[in-house]
């Protein structure tokens, strides 16, 4: 009777589960404590470099080195000369750790089909034209041209779009925005 019970189906099931219990409970998930929460790279700075045909470069930056919260971003006002053909290079940096500045532009250039730099202007600022293309021959926007005519003031907004629909009528209103930095511009 006892013998019979011992080898019964429920007995085998219960006992095998009991064995599994001991195995599984020793394999509980644990906090793996990566402990480097801010290692993730962010874009903290946008640098616009304007170069004249003569090779003179001037750079202006929009920096928010402490990330989204905390202190407000520091923005330099752009001053340009009238009636000049500038090339406009856009650079994105991670300066959250001053000792280890990362150039995110490299990654944007690598994933060029996934990204698009867009410009919008207000007031007397001329619209930049995109000069470079991605691997599919579509605009990218890291290298651009901006031709000033008369003097005036206004605003220039640079945005970096992720996964835009570059085939859309207005690709700059698609995708999600990684950067949107607005500069005051004076053309003298």
């Amino acid at each position: 009777m006892i013998q019979n019970k011992f080898f019964s189906l429920p007995m085998m099931f219960v006992l095998s589960l009991f064995a599994t219990t001991i195995l599984v409970s020793s394999a509980c998930n644990r906090d793996d404590d990566d402990n480097n929460p801010n290692e993730e790279e962010l874009i903290t700075s946008v640098i616009l470099t304007f170069t004249t045909p003569g090779g003179t470069s001037t750079s202006f930056s929009f920096k928010d080195t402490d990330g989204d919260g905390g202190a407000n971003p520091v923005v330099q006002d752009i001053t340009l000369a009238a009636a000049t053909n500038y090339t406009l290079a856009v650079k994105f940096l991670d300066e959250s750790n001053a000792a280890d500045v990362e150039d995110i532009t490299v990654e944007v250039a690598e994933e060029n089909a996934e990204h698009l730099v867009c410009f919008s202007v207000e007031g007397g600022v001329p619209q930049p034209t995109v000069d470079d293309t991605d691997d599919n021959g579509k605009p990218l926007g890291l290298q651009n041209r901006l031709t000033t005519t008369t003097s005036g003031t206004g605003k220039l907004t640079v945005s970096l779009k992720h996964q835009p629909n570059k085939g859309a009528a207005t690709p700059c209103s698609t995708g999600d925005t990684d950067v949107e930095a607005t500069f005051n511009v004076a053309i003298n």
């Binding site: 509980c28 998930n29 644990r30 906090d31 993730e40 790279e41 962010l42 874009i43 991670d94 990362e102 995110i104 490299v106 990654e107 992720h162 996964q163 999600d176 990684d178």
Partner: peptide
């Protein structure tokens, strides 16, 4: 004992060049 791990992935993979990133 309860253990909970929640991971959220944005559309954009993190910047950085290491493969694990």
């Amino acid at each position: 004992r309860q253990f909970n791990r929640r991971q959220e992935f944005d559309a954009h993979r993190p910047f950085g060049n290491l493969p694990d990133e």
